[in-house]
C-alpha cells in the first residue's frame, strides 16, 4: 500500500504520543480537511463545523498519550469528531429529538409503500441532475433528517464507510445502522423524487 492511500503509514505514532509538535502538525494537515467536511455535513453550518474541527484536535492532542491503537488513528479522530458534532447539535436543539423513538422504527411514513412518489426521474439529463440548484436541494434534504439518521447516511453513503465502521463510530448495533440507513435513504429518495419529479414535468413540456 502506498503512502497516499494510507497516509497514516507516514505518521509516527510514537512521536505523536510523545507530543512531537512537528508530527502533530502533520497529523492535523492530514486529517483536518476530512474532519471539517464531515462536520460540515453534520451541522450544515461553517462556524459550527469549525468549532467541531478545533475541539476535535484539542481533545485528540490531550488524549493521544493514552491512545492505544486499537482502532486506526483516523477512526479514532472520526469518533471524536462525530461525538463533538452530535454534542453540539444536542446543545443547540435540546428540545428537538435527535432520534426517532424506537416504537416508531417500523411504522413511520417513509417505510410504507403506500405514499411513495413514483416519478421516474432517472432519465433526466445530467446537467439537470447535477446543477447547482439541485446540489443545494440535496444538501437541504440531508439537513431534514433527524441527526442520527443523518449520521448514518453521512458516514455510510457520503464517506463510504462499512456498516460495521459506521456502527462502531456511532455506538449503534449493525442492525440499528441498517434500519436507519434504510430509512434515511428512503426519506431522501422521496425528497428527491418530489423535487426531480417537478423538473421532469417541466422538462417534458419543453
Amino acid at each position: 500500500m502506498n503512502v497516499e492511500s494510507n497516509p497514516e503509514a507516514s505518521l509516527s505514532l510514537e512521536a505523536l504520543k510523545n507530543g512531537d509538535r512537528h508530527e502533530l502538525a502533520r497529523m492535523v494537515d492530514l486529517y483536518s480537511e476530512k474532519i471539517y467536511r464531515l462536520a460540515l455535513k453534520f451541522t450544515n453550518n461553517p462556524q459550527d463545523a469549525e468549532d467541531v474541527l478545533q475541539e476535535t484536535f484539542l481533545k485528540a492532542m490531550r488524549a493521544l498519550p493514552e491512545f492505544e491503537g486499537r482502532s486506526s488513528l483516523s477512526t479514532w479522530l472520526y469518533r471524536i469528531a462525530v461525538n463533538e458534532a452530535l454534542m453540539l447539535l444536542r446543545k443547540q436543539k435540546p428540545d428537538i429529538a435527535l432520534d426517532i423513538p424506537a416504537e416508531e422504527e417500523d411504522s413511520s411514513e417513509e417505510m410504507s409503500s403506500n405514499g411513495l412518489i413514483l416519478a421516474d426521474w432517472c432519465c433526466l439529463p445530467e446537467d439537470e441532475l447535477l446543477s447547482e440548484e439541485s446540489r443545494r436541494f440535496l444538501d437541504q434534504a440531508i439537513q431534514q433528517l433527524p441527526a442520527t439518521l443523518r449520521g448514518v447516511f453521512v458516514l455510510r453513503d457520503l464517506e463510504g464507510m462499512s456498516i460495521k465502521e459506521t456502527a462502531d463510530l456511532l455506538g449503534l448495533s449493525e442492525t440499528n445502522v441498517k434500519t436507519r440507513l434504510l430509512r434515511a435513504r428512503l426519506f431522501l429518495r422521496q425528497q428527491l423524487s418530489r423535487y426531480f419529479g417537478e423538473r421532469l414535468k417541466e422538462w417534458e413540456q419543453k
Binding site: 409503500s113 441532475l129 439541485s134 457520503l158 435513504r185
Partner: peptide
C-alpha cells in the same frame, strides 16, 4: 413497475450523493 421505479430512483439518489463535487 412501481418497485422498479423505486429501486432505480433509490440507486440514483445514492449515486447523486456520492458524486459530490
Amino acid at each position: 413497475e412501481n418497485c422498479r421505479i423505486v429501486i432505480n430512483t433509490l440507486r440514483k439518489t445514492i449515486d447523486l450523493y456520492q458524486h459530490q463535487p
